[in-house]
Amino acid sequence: KFGRVHERAEGPAKILAIGTATPFHWVDQSSYPDYYFRVTNSDHLVDLKEKFRRICNRTMISKRHMFLTEEILQKNPNLCSHNEPSFDVRQDILVSEIPKLGKEAVLMAIDEWAQPKSKITHLVFCTRSGVDMPGADYQLIKLLGLSPSVQRVMMYQQGCFAGGTMLRLAKDLAENNKGARVLVVCAESSAIGFRGPSEDHPDNLIAQALFGDGAAALIIGSDPKMGLERPIFEIVTTAQTFVPNGDCHLALHLREMGLTFHCTKDVPPTIAKNVESCLIKAFEPLGISDWNSIFWILHPGGNAIVDQVESTLGLEPNKLQATRNILREYGNLSSACVLFILDEIRKKSGREGLKTSGDGLDLGVLLSFGPGLTIETVVLR
C-alpha cells in the first residue's frame, strides 16, 4: 500500500561536471621552513628547523595554497603556538571561509554543467574544518541561492578518505532518486591544524609540511539529458573497508589547540600492503587483474605512500603521474585531493585527444585512504 515514493533511475550514476578552487595566497615549499619557523617564533630550535627542512624536501611538493597569511597569523598569535588554546579563533575563521571556498568550486562546476542551478536536488558536503550547526551545507545553500528544499547531508571530521566516500553516497542518491542531481562538495583548510613546532611531537612537522587548502565540487546524476549534459565518468562500483587496528597508525583529534595529527612510519607500507586486496575485490568480477590496464586516481597521502603503492603493485611510472602532479602543485588537500586528481586526469586526456576521459582507457580506480586506515575503492568508467 505504501510502496516506494521515489522512482529509481534507469542507469548508473555519472559525473557530469567538476570544479575546483583554492585560496589566492600560496607558499613556496622550498622556502617554507624559514617562513614557518619565523612566523611561529621558533628560529631558536635550530636542529628541529633543519629536520623540518629535510621533511619538506622529501615531500616532492612545490607549492601549497593556504588561507592563513602572515597578517592573519600576526593578529592571532595563539595559532602560532604549539599548545595555546586557539580553537575559537580557528572556528571564527573557518565557519565562514569553508563555505565560501566551496562556493567557488561549485560555481566552476555549474559553469561546466551549463544547467540551471535550480535542477540541483541534493547536496553532500564534506570538511574536517569549521564544525558548526547549522553547518557548512546550510551556509553554502544560502551563498548559492539554492532552494531550501535541496536535500542535504553534512559530513564533518572524515579525513583524507572522504573523497571516495562522497562518490559512494552520491551514487546511491542519484541511482535511487530518478532525476536527482547531486552536488558533491569537499572543502578543506590546513588552518584547522596549523600550529608551531615542538621537539616532543615530530608528527606535527609532517602535517605542517604536507597539507594545503582547496575545494572540489562535482555534479552527479543518472540518465543524463542527451544534448544537454556531457558525462565525464561513470561510477561503476564503490566499497569501503578499514585495516584492523589501523587507528594506531593514523589518527587526528580535535583539541583546544586545533586538530592534532598522529602518524607513524608504518602508514605507507601498511596501505601499500592492503591496497591489492581492495583492487581484487573490485575488479575480479570485471575480469581485470592487470593493474597497468586501468587508469589511476590515488590519494597522495605523501610521497612515500605513492612510491610504495607503485612499487608493491608493479605500476608503470606514468600510472600515478596525475597523483604526483597534484601533490606537487597543491600538497595533500585531504578529502578534496582525489577529486582534484580526477579533474587533472580528464583534462590531460582532453588535451592529448585521447579516446576516453581516463587516459584513453575504459576502466579505472579511485583509491582514497585516511584516519583509521580507512580505504575507499571506486571503480570508474
Rank of each mutant, 00 (worst) to 15 (best):
K103L: 09
N245V: 05
D359N: 08
E316V: 04
D266R: 08
E256H: 11
N292W: 06
P317G: 06
H65L: 07
V243I: 12
P116L: 05
N318Y: 12
V378K: 15
H82D: 14
K14F: 15
V236L: 13
K281Q: 08
E70F: 00
E97S: 10
N325E: 14
L339C: 05
V5P: 14
P300Q: 04
D92E: 15
T241V: 01
S357G: 02
D359C: 09
T377R: 06
A239K: 12
F340P: 14
P268S: 11
E10D: 09
Y138E: 15
L254N: 10
I305T: 06
P244Q: 04
F233L: 10
E376N: 09
T270D: 15
L361T: 08
G360H: 13
F37H: 15
I232W: 06
L327C: 11
D247R: 10
T377A: 01
T22G: 06
F24A: 14
V124I: 05
T312W: 07
V89C: 12
L366D: 14
A21P: 08
I288A: 04
T40R: 09
Q308S: 11
P371I: 00
G102E: 07
M60R: 14
L279A: 02
T59S: 12
Q308R: 03
S129T: 14
T241L: 08
R53H: 15
Q115T: 07
N76F: 14
L339T: 10
W291C: 06
W296G: 05
Q29S: 08
G130P: 10
N83Q: 11
G258E: 13
N332H: 02
E97P: 06
E112P: 04
D34T: 10
L252M: 12
V267Y: 11
M133V: 09
P317W: 03
K49R: 10
L146I: 07
L101F: 01
Y330A: 05
F24C: 13
I61G: 10
L279N: 12
S86E: 12
L16M: 05
T323S: 10
G246C: 14
K75L: 02
I305A: 12
W26S: 08
G3E: 10
V338C: 10
Q74W: 08
G331N: 01
P269V: 02
I294L: 10
A304M: 00
L228F: 01
R4S: 14
N78I: 07
S86L: 06
K14V: 05
N318H: 00
P231A: 09
A304S: 05
I18M: 04
A272G: 08
V39F: 07
T241Q: 02
P23H: 09
L367N: 15
K348Y: 00
I61R: 06
I61Y: 00
A336P: 10
P12M: 06
S96C: 05
N41F: 03
E352P: 14
R346E: 02
H299R: 10
L363E: 14
G314I: 00
D111S: 12
L279M: 11
F24Q: 06
G372S: 11
M108D: 06
L354S: 04
L354M: 14
T312G: 12
P33L: 10
I55L: 10
H253A: 13
N332Y: 10
E352R: 15
F52D: 01
L259Y: 09
L366E: 02
H299V: 08
K100Y: 02
S86V: 11
L250D: 15
D92K: 07
N245D: 14
T312E: 12
L373E: 15
K103G: 09
F125T: 13
G11W: 05
S42L: 09
V243Q: 13
S149L: 09
T374I: 02
I341G: 11
L144S: 08
P317F: 05
W26M: 13
F340S: 08
P285K: 03
Y32T: 03
G353L: 03
L315D: 07
V309G: 05
V106T: 13
L366K: 09
L48V: 10
T20Y: 12
T356V: 04
A251G: 13
I55F: 15
L79G: 14
K142S: 04
E112Y: 05
L228G: 05
P300T: 03
A105R: 07
K51N: 08
Y32S: 04
D47N: 03
L373M: 15
Q321V: 06
L286E: 09
T69S: 12
F24Y: 12
G370T: 12
V124G: 04
I297W: 08
I93N: 11
R64K: 08
L101Y: 08
A21V: 08
L259H: 14
K51H: 01
H253V: 07
K265N: 08
V378N: 15
A114H: 00
G358M: 08
I271E: 00
P148V: 04
F125N: 04
H262E: 15
S277I: 07
K100H: 06
T121C: 09
L320T: 00
Y138K: 12
D343S: 03
R54L: 14
F242D: 13
L380E: 15
A9F: 02
D28C: 04
